[in-house]
Computed example of a mutant assay.
Amino acid sequence: MENAKLVGSTANEWLWATEKMRWRRVYPGRVDQVRAARAFAETLFEGMPCVDVVALAVGELAANAVRHTRSGEGGDGWFGLEVVCDNPVYIAVTDMGGHGIPTVLPEGYGGSYSESGRGLRILYELALMFGMHGSSTLGHTVWVDLDLNRKLEVDAQAPVQLVS
């Protein structure tokens, strides 16, 4: 970053400078930290059209890291969150590996009442780009590129399953 550009600039010019805004955080591999990661991302994108899509992506990727990898085992695991505020928005979660490879399941997998297995499919359908790199041994990074202006649309006609 060139310091000369900052002298005399407005707060808005500084905030929206040409450099991409990037954040990285590491969270303990616990379920309560999924909520913390999601809240962090919601704060970053507050007031932007994509805030709900970003929150969904962070929540799903972090939950998968805690639930399906060594990140959530043994009490000393962790997952990393990387967020880039640009267009497209970049969201990535890095886990500690293990237990297979993150997979987008086929459309309709498990039926409409399945309790798991559909999260990555939903992200895949919302994303401009979607990918994964790494290994079961070294850890995976699952990432999505999202449209900065995309709102999360809810289908009012979709059946809702009530749980008590």
Rank of each mutant, 00 (worst) to 15 (best):
V93M: 00
T69C: 12
E60G: 05
Y27F: 15
E42L: 10
N12P: 00
C50K: 06
L126C: 06
V163F: 10
L138P: 00
P28W: 04
W78K: 04
G59A: 08
R70T: 09
L6K: 06
P106K: 04
G117A: 06
A127Y: 02
L128W: 08
H133A: 11
S9T: 04
Y109V: 06
A36Y: 05
A17H: 13
K20M: 10
E46Q: 13
L81Y: 08
E13I: 05
G29H: 06
L126K: 13
R25N: 03
F45M: 07
N3E: 14
T43E: 15
E153H: 12
T43D: 15
G77D: 08
K5P: 00
Y27W: 11
W14A: 15
A65L: 04
A37N: 07
H133D: 15
D76E: 14
G97W: 00
M96G: 09
A65N: 04
V7I: 14
L162D: 05
L148C: 10
A37M: 09
W78D: 01
R25T: 01
L123I: 03
W16D: 03
E82S: 13
P49N: 09
R118S: 07
F79E: 11
E60Y: 01
N3P: 08
W16P: 01
A36Q: 14
D86T: 12
